[in-house]
Design a protein around this nucleic acid. Structure first.
Lengths: 201, 201
DNA sequence: GCATTGCGAAACTACCGCGTATCGAAACTT
DNA sequence: AAGTTTCGATACGCGGTAGTTTCGCAATGC
């Protein structure tokens, strides 16, 4: 946004506070991560939580959607390294990362929006998948496709269905399990092994 | 609520309109099915849509949450008949029903609440799983357990992981596919076959 | 007929969020 | 020192919703 062009004359007057800007974005992300809908997050609440005047928000963003969009752009999901020699090991890493990050603040934020707001804020949701979802899917897709190419997976494997089975299973556990028991530590292994080996004898 | 005790003296005055009551519940369900959050559904909007005065609503329910709870209780999800001879066929029926009902009004309502509101309205979400989710899960669990007992599935099958892989995969397609292409008609078969057979050669 | 209760509509108070405007103070450039 | 811009705080008008009350009318039992 603000380009501190080196050597160029700075604008006169008090410079905008980076600290305030960060506090605003942090507050926004926090509230969404805590389960608030985009509709429910109010500019007033963000301002209060960030210890900032509303003016400071409106000076930077035109409205709520604009702010949320910027806040989301600041979320960069680190991908796990999928460079293990076997497909199984890479899949386990991927699933374990999913499980581990299901407690993460940013990840919860991502999940909440991706799952709930796609109908109400299609523009937001789309941009959002581009940033947070797509890279991960493509990494997993690549792992599976290489597995097919190398013969480690069956040649007639439907990669899309395989991805859905693996990630869908982990999502199922992390988001919709009935009880509140902690998930088993080896859940990623169990899902990977069972999907890879199948259910039939 | 109202107990028309047979033989007992009816209360004097005009009886409450069943038609109005149904219209109110229908309106509530419709709005949630169309993607509205519980927070976003307003009593005023419900009254307007049902062609009813607000008084008529407050005379019956104490508030929004109370009303939504009753509305949800009226949703009875019909289970597909899982009496086919093979596990595969029963699984396909189950998944096909999921896919088919992903367009259904009531089902969308169920999904929206189960996925989005669990953190904000835990009481609501819990009662809700009891009504709508649990019976289905148990039906599928039973199918898989019988498959293990009969030897059609491996004896070391992890039934919970298997359920997650199957239903998670279908959910993945019906709720989070990237594009808007129609889903393949044989999606249920493909998921079932691949999860049953596994990915390995 | 009369009392009682429910009906839809409307008005009412109370509250909350939006987006704007204004304030005195603070942080910069020149 | 003068001028400019941002700061946080506060107040404003507007619109929307909650929940209550009042109105005139409809439906029932006695």
């Amino acid at each position: 946004m603000v380009t501190d062009q080196v050597g160029t004359a700075r604008t006169p007057g008090r410079p905008r506070s980076e600290k305030a800007e960060k506090a605003i974005i942090e507050a926004t992300i926090d509230m969404i991560a805590e389960g608030a809908t985009v509709s429910e997050v109010s500019i007033e609440a963000i301002a209060a939580r960030a210890g900032v005047g509303k003016t400071t928000i409106y000076r930077r963003w035109s409205g709520k959607e604009d702010l949320v969009l910027d806040a989301l752009a600041s979320l960069k999901a680190p991908l796990p390294a999928l460079d293990a020699p076997t497909v199984r090991e890479n899949v386990v890493r991927y699933l374990a990362a999913m499980q581990h990050e299901s407690h993460n603040r940013r990840t919860r934020c991502i999940m909440n929006i991706a799952m709930s707001e796609s109908e109400r804020f299609p523009h937001l949701a789309e941009r959002f998948r581009e940033i947070a979802i797509k890279p991960r899917r493509e990494a997993l897709r690549s792992v599976l496709q290489q597995g097919v190419a190398s013969g480690e997976l069956r040649p007639d494997t439907d990669v899309e269905v395989a991805m859905a089975s693996l990630t869908g299973a982990m999502l199922f556990f992390t988001k919709w399990r009935d009880n509140d028991d902690p998930l088993p530590a080896d859940l990623a292994d169990r899902i990977a092994d069972q999907v890879l080996s199948g259910l039939r004898p």
